[in-house]
Structure formats: C-alpha cells, structure tokens
C-alpha cells in the first residue's frame, strides 16, 4: 500500500479534492463521535431552528460508541459502527458544512451525491480493530447528549487515526471498485 497521507481537521475543500478512493490516511485534529440517537437529536434541533451543540463546519463525525475507558486511558476501545443507519441524516449535515464521516459499510446514493455536491468525503475505518484505534485518541470529552451514554457526542483529539477513503468527492466508490478488481468468476 502506498504511504498514508496525513490530513488535519478542519478539512478544506482543497484537501478534500486531493483525496481519492483507496487512499490510506492518518487523521489528526478533532473528530466528533455520533451515532443514531445523537444524529436524530441534531436534526430535531435543526428542525426547531436551534443552534447545534457543536459547530460541524469543516469537521468530521466518527460513527462510533466507545467502550468505557479504563482508569488512566483517555477512552475505551473505539471502532466504527455501520454507517447506513446514519444515511437519512447525513446529507443535511453535509449541506451545513460537515466535511467527513468515518464508519463502515455502504452509503446511500443521497449521501454519495451530497459528497460530490458539497465536497466531502467518507472514510472507512477498520471495524473490530477498536483497541488499536483507541491508541490514536489522545483526549476525549463528552460535549453533548451525555444521557445517551456510549451514544453521546464526544470530542476526540486524535493523532494519526488510520482510515481509508471509501467515497471521495469525485464520485468514486472503493467498495464497488475494490470488489470489481478482485472478483473472480
């Protein structure tokens, strides 16, 4: 695999345009966690015309709910959850400036279109390699919806968090192309 690209959040349009499917990246900066319930609340807030509890402009949401942190660890094991459950919510957040999502599994055509229209990217993290990924998290704090427990929104400070570009802003889809490349009939 070619050398991973180091990228820093917040992500600019230029940085996004530079990313292609299959690129290995190491992400540094701030990443917010959010799963189903947190997304629902974010969109409910938008519907009511309220401010979001976090400013998502240029930011990345990591679809993840960590295991409890052991004493002395900033966070417990933290790998991606399946992304399709967030598909109904993602396009609206992308339209409001969200630049990246980290998860696992296929996205809907609406999400993939939004990535192209608003220049954003979908990264795949390694499902199940959660103890390894926790090593990239230097700091973590709950910033919204604390009552949701593992599903609360956490602000993570990450250093060299490993991921792979699955859907880029050019319409590429690694899940499709990777499968085509290695399929044997």
């Amino acid at each position: 695999m070619p050398k991973p690209k180091s990228i820093t959040v917040p992500l600019s349009d230029e940085a996004i345009e530079d990313l292609r499917i299959g690129d290995a990246v190491l992400i540094s900066g701030v990443v917010y966690t959010g799963r189903d319930s947190a997304h629902k609340r974010l969109l409910d807030a938008l519907d009511r015309g309220e401010q979001l509890p976090v400013d998502l402009t240029g930011q990345i949401i990591y679809y993840a709910g960590p295991a409890p942190a052991k004493p002395g660890h900033p966070i417990g094991s933290i790998g991606p959850t399946t992304s399709y459950r967030m598909d109904p919510y993602a396009p609206r957040l992308i339209a409001r400036g969200l630049k990246g999502m980290i998860g696992k599994g296929n996205r809907s055509s609406e999400v993939i279109e939004a990535l192209q229209q608003y220049k954003a990217v979908y990264f795949g993290a390694i499902g199940g390699a959660a103890a390894l990924m926790a090593k990239s998290v230097k700091n973590a704090e709950v910033v919204a919806f604390e009552d949701l427990g593992p599903e609360a929104i956490r602000r993570l400070e990450v250093k060299d968090f490993p991921a792979v570009v699955v859907n880029d802003c050019h319409g590429g889809d690694l899940y499709k192309e990777g499968m085509e490349t290695y399929r044997r009939d």
């Binding site: 094991s77 390699a129 959660a130 103890a131």
Partner: peptide
C-alpha cells in the same frame, strides 16, 4: 496486519478487541 496488531494490544492491555462487546 492491523487486525492482528489489535488482537495483540487487546490481549496485553486487557481491553476489549471491539467496542461492541
């Protein structure tokens, strides 16, 4: 390779292999 590394970390540090336990 990363999955194997993950297993080594989890076993050594006594933390869950995956956050979904």
């Amino acid at each position: 390779d990363k999955i194997l590394e993950n297993a080594a970390i989890a076993g050594k540090e006594r933390v869950p292999l995956c956050q979904d336990t």
